[in-house]
Design a protein around this nucleic acid. Structure first.
Length: 587
RNA sequence: GGUCCCGUAGCUCAAUUGGAUAGAGCAUCUGCCUUCUAAGCAGAGGGUUGCAGGUUCAAGUCCUGCCGGGAUCGCCA
């Protein structure tokens, strides 16, 4: 079904067209002034310039034509030339009753099956995941769900950092500490043991040490670089050790992502494209895109019209190693060949913007992607501490993602205990509720921010359960479920929602949904969904407080209220699903 | 220094991309649990949108200049 906004827009657009004006002026939206009208069209003011008439004169002509339609209960001109519109309750009722049978709730198919690859999460094998990974993971996963809902064929790839200097740092550190390990014996020919010599806890300690030592000591850094090159050349001992580190690391990542309901279709990393690199580089050399520059092999990207510096893209560093610019470009080669995507989206920290601009420019310049493929860096801001710098714990370290999740879980349990409702639940159900509440709190608190801006990390806010929070939404869901249980209600398509003064605002809110979803899809902006679902839940809560459902004596009125609450329930749950948030049966 | 981003209520954030009276949550204050879950509802106070100009019917949003903060600028990711 098409959205109501679209249907009204068509009618108004036709009126403009009949006046010899561009139909595009007929775009209708929900009113910014609900006290004045339900819908508005601002096109008369824009059209006035073209028509060389006053805005009000244009509006009057349009209004005269709209008056022939009986779906409008009010048509007015206000201010400089706003056309304000109200619909009859019958027209609203017809739409909302159809909505109840549409799983997409009025959203058209935007994607038409085109493929979108989403690159998000980006955890590193060398180090444990911390709160800094939260944003990229959940924004990326949400966009994957949103684009899929919008009709795209989506592929989410975790794209682990597993082939760069960080790995060389860790391997060389291990070699310094344990030179006797068989992984470091040049004459050992295998097989290597099944069990990993390092745990994720080891890695959490080793990487910061190795990184710190390498940065402060050039000789130590040289060891890291050498180990990186040898790993990339697949020296057997290094490669076997690397495989073990990847294994333990993935196990840890999976538990973190699972805890947050973050899903990936592909578990690939930088190393996955190792075999793509050499042929790609040969091709770029043959076509003279790749040239030597101070001992390194690079692709120059400068253009004369540039207003800012464009450093060249590095393919091979002077020491012979490849770096993330190399693997990112090779990954595009790989994705284009395998998936023929219409878009590739990178949900990565905004600070890497220049890097992605370089990679994209190189990809277009060399013909690795055709100009009609969209490459977008969907950047996000950083999570800062109270000092405005990237967040660190009081001890100066990073807060592990699993620790954040544990903190939320503990607080949710405490909350259930304080409310004295934990005695009504079994241990398993209690765990499940606490988990759902804490995940809802953490994810919603993050996703409701505009992804581009930095924001201040606040543990209390991230694990807050009142006000504009995830748990508030779960609470509304649970209340509706409980209401239906008490009423022993099952929805049936024959149940009619009767629109009247008591529920009109709630119905009008649901009319907005399709344009919210489209905006979120267009701008890759999850916070539009958060804003909307919160307003919807809030409006339902208000309705719920004002209208006692179970005591309604008139059968049709009662059925209408139950059917409406069912529709709202489906609506909220659907959006929560897009955010990767799930509600318990009760809480 | 070059380039880019940001500055909105005491705090944390929105504002459908140029629309009407700039909105939420937290915090503060006032009401509401003997009918559906009070993790709730109803209401109040709180603003020269950093400053100064400009563009037009209309500017938090666009252009210019200041002030303040941040990011980034060749072999880390």
């Amino acid at each position: 079904m098409t959205s109501l906004i679209l249907n009204i827009s068509k009618i108004v657009a036709q009126a403009f067209a009949d006046e010899g004006l561009e139909a595009g002026f007929g775009q209708v939206k929900t009113s910014d002034r609900p006290d004045l009208a339900q819908f508005q069209c601002n096109g008369a003011m824009a059209a006035a310039k073209v028509a060389k008439l006053s805005p009000r004169a244009v509006a009057e002509k349009i209004v005269a034509r709209l008056n022939t339609h009986d779906i409008f209960s009010k048509i007015e001109i206000a201010g400089p030339g706003f056309i304000n519109l109200n619909l009859t309750d019958d027209a609203l009722g017809e739409y909302v009753n159809n909505l109840a049978c549409d799983p997409r709730l009025g959203v058209r198919d935007i994607g038409a099956g085109a493929t979108v690859v989403l690159d998000y999460g980006g955890p590193n094998v060398a180090k444990a995941m911390h709160v800094g990974h939260l944003r990229a993971s959940i924004i990326g996963d949400t966009l994957r769900r949103v684009l899929k809902f919008a009709g795209y064929d989506t592929i989410g790839d975790v794209h682990m950092g597993d082939w760069g200097t960080m790995m060389g740092m860790v391997i060389s550190e291990l070699e310094l500490r344990h030179p006797e390990w068989i992984y470091f014996q040049e004459d050992f020919s295998g097989p290597y043991p099944d069990e990993s010599p390092v745990t994720i806890e080891d890695l959490a300690e080793i990487y910061p040490t190795a990184s710190g030592n390498s940065k402060s000591d050039p000789a130590r850094m040289a060891l890291s670089h050498r180990a990186t090159v040898e790993l990339q050349n697949k020296r057997p001992g290094y490669y076997a050790l690397w495989q073990k580190m990847v294994e333990v690391s993935i196990a840890s990542m999976k538990s973190n992502f699972a805890a947050l309901n973050v899903y990936f279709d592909l578990w690939l990393g930088e190393a996955s494209v190792h075999d793509v690199i050499a042929p790609m580089v040969e091709d770029l050399k043959a076509k003279h895109y790749a040239v030597m520059d101070d001992g390194a092999l690079v692709v120059p990207l400068k253009r004369n019209e540039d207003t800012k510096e464009y450093p060249p893209l590095f393919l091979y560093k002077r020491d012979g190693a490849v770096m993330y610019s190399t693997t990112d470009l090779a990954t595009i080669v790989d994705r284009v060949e395998k998936f023929h995507p219409a878009k590739i989206l990178y949900i990565v920290d905004q600070r890497q913007n220049l890097h992605f601009e370089q990679v994209f420019r190189a990809a277009y310049l060399t013909g690795i992607v055709s100009p009609d493929v969209e490459l977008t860096h969907v950047g996000h801001g950083t999570m800062n501490g109270p000092d405005g710098k990237p967040f660190k714990t009081r001890a100066g370290g990073v807060l592990r993602l699993e620790d954040l999740i544990a903190l939320g879980l503990e607080k949710a349990r405490q909350r259930l205990h304080e409310a004295g409702i934990d005695q009504h639940f079994s241990g398993d159900e209690l765990d499940d509720i606490a988990r759902k509440v804490s995940v809802a709190a953490i994810k919603f608190a993050d996703l409701q921010n505009n992804r581009m801006t930095d924001y201040i990390f606040d543990l209390d806010r991230l694990t807050s359960f009142e006000g504009k929070t995830g748990p508030y939404l779960l609470y509304q869901v649970v209340r509706i479920k409980s209401l239906h249980e008490k009423a022993d209600y099952q929805f049936d398509p024959s149940h009619r929602i009767i629109v009247d003064r008591s529920n009109r605002d709630l119905v009008l809110m649901m009319v907005e949904w399709p344009q919210v979803l489209e905006a979120a899809t267009r701008d890759y902006a999850p916070h539009f969904l958060c804003d909307y679902v919160y307003k919807l839940a809030q409006m339902f809560s208000s309705y719920y407080a004002a209208t006692h459902v179970l005591s309604q004596e008139d059968v049709a009125t009662k059925i209408s209220a139950l059917a409406l609450s069912h529709l709202v329930l489906k609506h909220i749950e659907m959006i929560l699903d897009l955010l990767g948030i799930y509600a318990p049966q009760r809480m």
